[in-house]
């Protein structure tokens, strides 16, 4: 399977990438690790006329502490997140989740920016970013802006990014010492989650779900139940409240709702602070 013809442009800087996006508009797509986009292009489900390769913007590949947060550049690969000491210490949920993505080959290429910008409800890092209360920085022709993860995922494979914006950075509040859990349920090695749950307990609880709707989403009903004093099991019973999970070969919607309740209960128990 071979992608349709496209014009290949290599961006030497973020500004150049923004310039190329502005010039080519809807005809253009950014290429980061290519591990969501290239499979779609090979299937001809995507056929951008212009491909703007940002894969060489090494200045967008970094993980560093900034006060109460850890900032991660958009081009940071899953593998680098998985083995990062800084994240291991201050945001261990993110490092763990990155290590659960696909397989080693995928983690050697895929990037956090690509994963968030793709906005796939079945992907893992978006749920972790929601549970952690992350924010996302994007640069466009008029400068940069910050978008809360909560406002970022707007529809199926759609995000708040404008067509001429490049996602540059993800900011994660430190959750040093917080309880956390990631529950990924699948039936085959290497696979995407049938349902997944990311949870952080740091005074309040952040709980987010993988593959339970058309976007990565927060389990608001669970968070609210916990905030009003419900126990873990009682709160977990609300995991699927108001959600319309997808049906596919792997699972019916009802089975996904069941999994969400069970996995949220396990996640809350595992993330319970040990003190």
């Amino acid at each position: 399977m071979i992608p349709a013809r496209f014009d290949y442009r290599r961006a030497g800087s973020t500004d150049e990438a923004v310039g190329l996006l502005t010039e080519h508009g809807d005809d253009a797509k950014l290429l980061a690790g290519g591990h969501s986009l290239l499979p779609l292009m090979k299937l001809r489900l995507a056929a951008p006329a212009v491909l703007i390769d940002i894969g060489r913007l090494s200045d967008l590949s970094y993980i560093r502490e900034e006060g109460d947060a850890v900032v991660v550049g958009a081009l940071t690969r899953h593998r680098d997140i998985e083995v990062s000491d800084v994240l291991g210490r201050h945001v261990p949920l993110l490092a763990h989740v990155a290590g659960q993505i696909g397989d080693p080959q995928v983690r050697h290429r895929g990037t956090i920016g690509g994963s968030l910008a793709h906005g796939d409800p079945a992907s893992d890092l978006p749920a972790a970013c929601l549970a952690l209360g992350a924010s996302i920085t994007a640069v466009g022709p008029t400068g940069s802006r910050t978008i809360a993860a909560d406002d970022f995922f707007t529809g199926f494979l759609e995000t708040a990014l404008r067509p001429d914006e490049v996602l540059t950075e993800v900011t994660l509040p430190k959750a040093t010492g917080a309880g956390w859990s990631f529950q990924k349920f699948n039936r085959r090695a290497q696979d995407w989650a049938i349902v997944g749950v990311a949870a952080v307990r740091n005074g309040t609880a952040g709980v987010a779900l993988v593959n339970m709707g058309s976007t990565p989403l927060r389990a608001r009903a669970v968070e609210e139940a916990l905030a009003s004093g419900a126990g873990d099991a009682e709160a977990a019973d609300h995991a699927a409240d108001g959600l319309e999970p997808p049906e596919d070969l792997n699972a019916s919607a009802e089975y996904r709702r069941h999994l969400a309740r069970v996995l949220v209960r396990r996640a809350l128990q595992e993330a319970r602070p040990s003190t």
Binding site: Y8, G34, L38, R109
Partner: peptide, 16 residues
């Protein structure tokens, strides 16, 4: 291996 790391060469462009 690209740069010493395993990758799936069906999911990478030669230009990359």
């Amino acid at each position: 291996h690209v740069g010493g790391e395993s990758v799936k060469s069906c999911t990478m462009l030669a230009v990359q």
